[in-house]
Amino acid sequence: MKKLIMVLALLIAAFGATGGLAEGQPVAIVVHPDVQVSDLTTSQLRRIFLADQQFWPDRSRIVLLVRAPKADDRNMVLDRIYQMSESEYSRYWIAKIFRAEIAAGPQIVFSSNMAQELVTAIPGSITFIPSSEIDSHIKVLSIDGLLPDQPGYALH
């Protein structure tokens, strides 16, 4: 029995470490608490994650945090927001830097915990986290007026 519990615990830990996203579980868009925005349209969200919009309305710079490859929430964001494959995504950022449209690509985060720590610490930052892993003090944005737990939310 102990062995079974240990195996299950290891499986759960491994699942968590790779950013597993249960089916139907939404991904939340979260920002630094001082960001003066509470809702984005899907179009605005895409422009921000594509770095076509690099400043918040108060003219502070947006800092983009993106999960490292393999995480399920990253895969969802690549599919729904970027609408790119992994190789297209890589090429997109190299091209963006090459064209001097941005000074640097998105910052990589390696876990949901890291994403939460950074998004509360770095002014102007924005990232995405599975909604089930969000701490209560994190600022969650609504997309097209809907929060992650509401029907019709864009990142289910």
Binding site: V63, Y89, I94, G105, Q107, I108, M114, L118, A121, I122
Partner: peptide
């Protein structure tokens, strides 16, 4: 070839250099 010297050749973006600084505040 392309080499992104700022991020250990992780093409999809730089590592988070603000991480250490931001968390130490």
């Amino acid at each position: 070839f392309v080499f992104n010297a700022s991020s250990g050749n992780r093409l999809y973006g730089a590592r988070a250099p603000e991480y250490r600084v931001a968390l130490s505040r």
